[in-house]
Simulated scan of single mutants.
Amino acid sequence: MNRTRTAIVIGGGIAGPVAALALRRAGIEAAVHESHATTADGIGGALSVAPNGRAALGLVGVDRIGAPMNAIVLQNHKGRVITEIRQPMQFSWRADLYRRLYDLALDQGVAVHHGHELADVRESGTGIRAVFADGTVSEEADILIGADGLRSTVRRLIDPRAPQPRYSGLLGFGARVDGAGRPPTGDRMYMSFGRRAFFGHQSFDDGTGVWFANLPHPYLTWTHVRQTTNEEWLRRLGEAFADDRVPALDLLRRTPPQDLVTAGPMEDLPHVPHWHRGRMVLVGDSAHATSPSSGQGASLAAESAVELARALRDLPYPQAFTAYERARRARVERVIAQAARTNSGKAAGPVGRTFRDALLPLFARFATPERMAWQYDHRINWEAPIAA
């Protein structure tokens, strides 16, 4: 069998280190190349890790992650509880998960190179090299994995006509608040469908809290979002929640402008036609980006990285890429579609809000653990062999 022995991983966020760690477990040497010159310590907001994601991360050596977030309490703009949905999630700061994976990769001997922005590839009959924007060229490897996110360069190299990200109609914001001034919510995250925007918050025993907001807004690029000051965004968010009887205004007032995390436009990739070509393959958001509303972005990225490593362990890379895509595509696209439906409710207009609020109790009846098991109970059997 023409076994894969070496891999170049493009992207050092979440999916990249998980892929490198899973590949090493499969006996494949991997090096990570990250475009940013420094690490991403302290960068990014909060995220949730689902049970399926925790299981996938456990396969590469990550055990405990964050704090329990076992229920979501849905409210309307008046603060009235519509329903409580039990979902066994873990709350984590992206920076904490990133650092955990980064340190684990270094401890296991994974080479991580910074300042390597991918510009092109050189593929031959014997291997593939990465060409970086500064003119340097990587050592030759058997395959190249694109874990370079929503605006993946590897995706464009695989298919110059690959789709662009799709905007949900929402801008994302959030912050950690040191003095939340609210009683602990335990393992519950409260989420409110406001009159003009969506708001979520959770308070912890140490007096800190976290909040996030999804603001319906015409599309803005990251550059345009950053051209507006944090003070101005906090003011606009305050206007959006001014008529709602939820804790949004209080938590916004307690948020120093410098602590505001601007997530920018909330986007997804509902269908990427080509996940691989030649010696290149996609993993994580570069192949199947889902909106943050899914609560599954990091979890799906971890799952895909592990499944790709399993396939490469057992099959030559052409068959491995096909088996990996076959195992993943239907599942991830179903999650993406579900998150898109959630976003449509968050961005509803006056008439849509009326129907949404009326139908939410009905939706909650169907969001039972049994009906959500296809998402949360998914487990990867690392030891099981993969057939061509």
Rank of each mutant, 00 (worst) to 15 (best):
212 F>E: 01
214 N>R: 15
169 G>H: 03
255 T>K: 08
247 P>G: 04
194 G>N: 12
203 S>Q: 08
248 A>D: 08
162 A>Q: 04
233 W>S: 05
235 R>E: 03
185 T>Q: 01
171 L>P: 12
260 L>G: 03
176 R>E: 12
191 M>D: 08
241 F>M: 08
248 A>F: 04
280 M>I: 10
285 D>F: 06
241 F>N: 04
243 D>L: 11
178 D>S: 14
238 G>C: 10
237 L>Y: 01
241 F>S: 10
252 L>C: 02
163 P>A: 01
231 E>S: 13
239 E>G: 05
170 L>M: 04
255 T>S: 00
193 F>K: 01
182 R>K: 05
208 T>A: 10
218 P>L: 13
272 V>D: 02
267 E>W: 00
254 R>P: 00
165 P>R: 01
281 V>L: 04
220 L>R: 15
208 T>Y: 15
158 I>Q: 02
159 D>N: 10
274 H>A: 09
235 R>M: 12
160 P>F: 00
248 A>E: 10
229 T>N: 11
264 G>R: 10
230 N>Q: 14
266 M>C: 05
228 T>P: 03
204 F>K: 12
241 F>P: 04
226 R>D: 14
278 G>F: 02
240 A>E: 02
177 V>A: 06
254 R>I: 11
166 R>V: 13
199 F>G: 03
168 S>I: 12
247 P>I: 04
186 G>P: 03
285 D>G: 05
181 G>L: 03
164 Q>T: 14
187 D>N: 08
174 G>W: 03
221 T>S: 13
272 V>W: 01
170 L>T: 09
195 R>K: 06
220 L>S: 12
264 G>Q: 07
169 G>I: 15
223 T>V: 09
156 R>N: 06
230 N>R: 11
259 D>K: 13
163 P>Y: 01
168 S>L: 03
267 E>Q: 09
254 R>S: 04
179 G>E: 14
266 M>L: 12
216 P>T: 13
161 R>P: 10
186 G>R: 02
172 G>P: 07
216 P>W: 07
282 L>D: 00
235 R>S: 10
160 P>Y: 00
197 A>L: 04
174 G>P: 00
220 L>G: 07
169 G>P: 02
237 L>S: 01
260 L>T: 01
268 D>Q: 08
249 L>A: 14
195 R>G: 10
196 R>E: 09
216 P>C: 14
221 T>L: 11
213 A>V: 15
214 N>Q: 09
228 T>L: 06
223 T>R: 13
287 A>M: 07
207 G>Q: 11
258 Q>Y: 08
194 G>L: 03
223 T>M: 07
163 P>Q: 00
232 E>M: 07
254 R>C: 03
170 L>H: 02
179 G>N: 11
201 H>T: 08
243 D>Q: 03
282 L>G: 02
248 A>L: 01
237 L>F: 09
200 G>E: 13
163 P>S: 06
161 R>V: 13
163 P>D: 01
238 G>Q: 04
239 E>W: 12
234 L>F: 12
187 D>P: 09
261 V>F: 04
157 L>K: 07
169 G>L: 05
